[in-house]
Amino acid sequence: MLGVAIAVFAYYSVWVFVLPFVDESSILTYLFLPREYAIKLPLLLLVVAGLGVGTFVGNVLIKKAQKEKLKKSKKSD
């Protein structure tokens, strides 16, 4: 996982910081997506990760509330 993280960081760093200074006819430009995706992709990943965390926390809270409700109903019996 560390190797993948380093590779993604290096790719993104070259894409954002080096590619604007490279001539557009260079073969290096064909290895990267257009520059507008340098903002759109991380933003999309951030939204998806936020939704995933929110869904997980909501699911845990709902299950906890159900367990407490079941526990209270058993005590009153």
Rank of each mutant, 00 (worst) to 15 (best):
residue 57 V to G: 01
residue 33 L to G: 12
residue 60 V to S: 00
residue 29 T to M: 05
residue 5 A to S: 14
residue 3 G to L: 11
residue 43 L to V: 15
residue 5 A to Q: 10
residue 56 F to A: 12
residue 27 I to N: 09
residue 69 K to D: 11
residue 42 P to L: 01
residue 65 A to D: 07
residue 19 L to Q: 07
residue 70 L to H: 12
residue 9 F to D: 14
residue 66 Q to G: 04
residue 6 I to E: 12
residue 35 R to M: 09
residue 1 M to T: 07
residue 33 L to P: 05
residue 14 V to P: 05
residue 45 L to W: 15
residue 42 P to G: 01
residue 50 G to R: 02
residue 69 K to P: 04
residue 19 L to G: 07
residue 67 K to T: 01
residue 10 A to W: 12
residue 24 E to R: 07
residue 67 K to Y: 03
residue 60 V to N: 01
residue 76 S to Y: 09
residue 43 L to A: 12
residue 49 A to H: 13
residue 9 F to P: 06
residue 73 S to C: 07
residue 53 V to G: 06
residue 25 S to A: 10
residue 51 L to D: 11
residue 75 K to M: 05
residue 31 L to R: 02
residue 54 G to K: 00
residue 23 D to H: 10
residue 73 S to Y: 13
residue 21 F to Q: 15
residue 1 M to R: 04
residue 58 G to A: 00
residue 48 V to E: 02
residue 59 N to D: 12
residue 64 K to E: 10
residue 69 K to Y: 14
residue 55 T to I: 14
residue 56 F to M: 12
residue 60 V to R: 06
residue 59 N to W: 07
residue 62 I to S: 05
residue 18 V to H: 06
residue 65 A to S: 13
residue 31 L to T: 05
residue 22 V to D: 02
residue 15 W to P: 05
residue 13 S to R: 12
residue 45 L to T: 06
residue 64 K to C: 05
residue 53 V to H: 04
residue 17 F to K: 03
residue 42 P to Q: 00
residue 55 T to K: 11
residue 39 I to T: 08
residue 28 L to K: 01
residue 69 K to M: 09
residue 44 L to S: 10
residue 72 K to A: 15
residue 20 P to W: 08
residue 31 L to M: 03
residue 16 V to C: 04
residue 71 K to E: 15
residue 68 E to Q: 14
residue 17 F to D: 01
residue 13 S to Q: 05
residue 51 L to A: 11
residue 37 Y to D: 06
residue 36 E to L: 08
residue 21 F to G: 07
residue 53 V to L: 01
residue 53 V to I: 04
residue 65 A to H: 11
residue 54 G to A: 08
residue 61 L to S: 06
residue 5 A to K: 05
residue 11 Y to S: 01
residue 44 L to I: 05
residue 23 D to Y: 12
residue 25 S to Y: 13
residue 36 E to F: 07
residue 37 Y to E: 05
residue 36 E to S: 09
residue 66 Q to L: 14
residue 52 G to W: 00
residue 73 S to I: 08
residue 53 V to N: 03
residue 47 V to Y: 03
residue 58 G to D: 00
residue 56 F to I: 15
residue 20 P to A: 13
residue 35 R to C: 04
residue 7 A to R: 04
residue 40 K to N: 04
residue 52 G to A: 00
residue 61 L to T: 12
residue 38 A to M: 03
residue 58 G to Y: 03
residue 46 L to N: 07
residue 26 S to F: 02
residue 24 E to T: 13
residue 52 G to S: 01
residue 17 F to P: 00
residue 14 V to F: 15
residue 57 V to L: 06
residue 16 V to P: 01
residue 30 Y to H: 09
residue 74 K to P: 03
residue 37 Y to H: 04
residue 13 S to D: 08
residue 14 V to L: 04
residue 19 L to C: 02
residue 16 V to Q: 12
residue 49 A to K: 13
residue 26 S to C: 00
residue 27 I to Q: 13
residue 17 F to W: 09
residue 70 L to A: 14
residue 63 K to S: 06
residue 18 V to W: 09
residue 55 T to E: 12
residue 48 V to A: 13
residue 54 G to Q: 02
residue 48 V to R: 10
residue 6 I to T: 14
residue 16 V to W: 11
residue 61 L to P: 03
residue 4 V to K: 15
residue 34 P to Y: 02
residue 38 A to Y: 03
residue 72 K to D: 04
residue 50 G to S: 03
residue 66 Q to D: 15
residue 17 F to C: 02
residue 68 E to R: 10
residue 6 I to D: 08
residue 30 Y to N: 14
residue 17 F to S: 02
residue 3 G to Y: 14
residue 2 L to I: 09
